[in-house]
Design a protein around this nucleic acid. Structure first.
Lengths: 105, 105
DNA sequence: CCCCTATGTAAGATAGTGCTTAAATACTTA
DNA sequence: TAAGTATTTAAGCACTATCTTACATAGGGG
């Protein structure tokens, strides 16, 4: 999870994720969306995202097609949602925990 | 959102968020949970989290009590969930967009 | 008032990140 | 197999983050 959250902390990488959200995109096409930065820089971001499990890659002849790996976000999404969820869930959790403690005695 | 996601990318800060999830905690009590790092370091993490809108502070005499600000996570949670949500949502979004484009013509 | 506790701020060392240019790898096509 | 296209890897550099120690601030209690 740590790697995934670190990866998502960068705005360029978030933009990349948005670009591949709806299907496969070639590295070059991705790089074209960032006129401000060089292709190698984008390539490095792709490596970070891939290594974090957030992207999958496939070779298609010359090109490399990247796609979103939603599973990679599962843990991170879990944490965020856990923190973000409101008091109702909190009370529920507390109740369950207390129940477990009761059972353990 | 950028600041919130960057803040959450650090494991120590995530641990802090977990500690304040269920209620207010004094800075010193938080620091005690991290024997490996100094109190000032924790204080700096608290500043980052507060500045990102993820924590709220309140003075209580000598001490400062920190609490989780769930609202601060809203945007970040939205992004993650948006990326993490499965193809059903995706198709729905595509349909809506197409509908909008139709309407715009 | 003086001292103790709780906490934050400042300054500096160190490590990590993200960018760039140059070179390497890999596939495609004539 | 030579040349072209797509992409990654390498090396180096500037900027940022995180930690540490030393100091400053602020409230509480004798």
């Amino acid at each position: 999870m740590d790697e995934a959250l670190r990866a998502v902390a960068d705005p360029t990488r978030r933009a990349i994720l948005l670009l591949v959200r709806d299907g496969e995109v070639a590295a070059g096409d991705l790089a074209r969306h960032f006129p401000g930065i060089s292709r190698p820089a984008v390539s490095q971001h792709l490596r970070v995202l891939t290594s974090a499990g957030l992207l999958g890659v496939r070779r298609d002849g010359n090109r490399r097609l990247y796609r979103l790996r939603r599973e990679g976000l599962a843990e991170a999404a879990g944490f965020i949602q856990d923190m973000w969820s409101d008091r109702l869930d909190l009370l529920k959790r507390a109740a369950e925990q207390e129940e477990n403690e009761q059972g353990a005695r």
